[in-house]
Design a protein around this nucleic acid. Sequence first.
DNA 1: GCGCCCCTGTCATATCGCTGTCATATTTTC
DNA 2: GAAAATATGACAGCGATATGACAGGGGCGC
Lengths: 229, 229
Amino acid sequence: MSSKTVLIVDDEASIREMIAIALEMADYRVLEADNAQTGHAMALDQKPDLILLDWMMPGTSGIELARRLKREEATAEMPIILLTAKGEEDNKVQGLEAGADDYITKPFSPRELVARLKAVLRRATPPGIEEAVEVEGLRLDPSSHRVTSHGGALEIGPTEYRLLQFFMTHQERAYTRSQLLDQVWGGNVYVEERTVDVHIRRLRKALGETHQHLVQTVRGTGYRFSTRE
Amino acid sequence: MSSKTVLIVDDEASIREMIAIALEMADYRVLEADNAQTGHAMALDQKPDLILLDWMMPGTSGIELARRLKREEATAEMPIILLTAKGEEDNKVQGLEAGADDYITKPFSPRELVARLKAVLRRATPPGIEEAVEVEGLRLDPSSHRVTSHGGALEIGPTEYRLLQFFMTHQERAYTRSQLLDQVWGGNVYVEERTVDVHIRRLRKALGETHQHLVQTVRGTGYRFSTRE
DNA sequence: GCGCCCCTGTCATATCGCTGTCATATTTTC
DNA sequence: GAAAATATGACAGCGATATGACAGGGGCGC
């Protein structure tokens, strides 16, 4: 899964650092800005998936930046979480009016931060509505995360599932091991090409006699998913 | 009967207060929001049984919020009653088009409000809430708040009950821990994802040998409730 | 108002399945 | 028949899930 990018805008380096560490541990990519101007520029340039914004900063305040971001089309869709000192309930209202998506009062635990952040991201990223695919009685349904053969459930591992999903949505085309690694395993993993063979075998086994023929070897090149011989 | 929760979204504190008192006397649980953003967030988090929405508010208007709520799956089922100043007949049409379930013109008497509200709730309640669900002899009956296996009552905790209810009304679909936290625990609670595992285990234990197989692990993803396999 | 008990969330630990790799067998090609 | 490519089976490490235990909190009954 591609990790999300989070932009932190806060004038205090120590706080940025603390947050950055927490987020990196949770596998987010982190950008930092120590004032509203820089933050604004980075938001435009880097298009982060979410912005953490300190309420109180010298110069342009966080809330002002929030308003500005929400006003501009390029950044209007970015979710914003405001960070603020405790107790200031009024701020909450103002903050949410300015278009912030959530609001965390300092002090907060890294865990809380990450949890809220996840929630906001989840809300902002509507789950892709994936359609089930079916071929010759072999059906892969992303919503139930299940593969069935004429109604009967098949035993299939995670990697084989992804592999099959890729194949079923990209039929009649030969892929090299390298391409499959990219598409199914994801970009920067280093894995032996031969490993693909092994998973192909596991996939065939899982498909059983009935559907094995769909996964075809293209000698000298790689593999292909096809209904034809 | 468990009392219903009503969310009031209105920018005028005095009106909210008036309504809140009327509703509390009628034994409803009341939530308040003074703008559309907050209202939206609370609707997601608290899952009220009904929303009272002011037509005219600074910023995002009530009707806009109504549309948004109806558009999103999580809130689409929530009944909405629009509050509006007298005379504006046009609004009525727009409001009902936006998906509002009823429409009350100010000024109104508390009695009228409660009466309409009851009517709307009565109409809206049937789906899911009151219906018992049964699968392979496992029966969950919301009206008696009870789970039985072939007639025999099962010992089950509150969280496991909600979890099971969610599962039984959303079968054959894989959910991540994150989604389950959202759906069963509710929005902004922050709880470890692993906690879901624990409650799954408790649920399985409660279901016993007979029905355990219905709650399935989807490795690398989360869990699923299914009668197959 | 007080105390007890159940429920909850978390942690440490145990378990299990998945993964990537290798050695070896089999098939294909020329 | 030899070389190259692919298939297969076995295996150890690792990560994800299951489990058991525990302390705090809250509700309920008294």
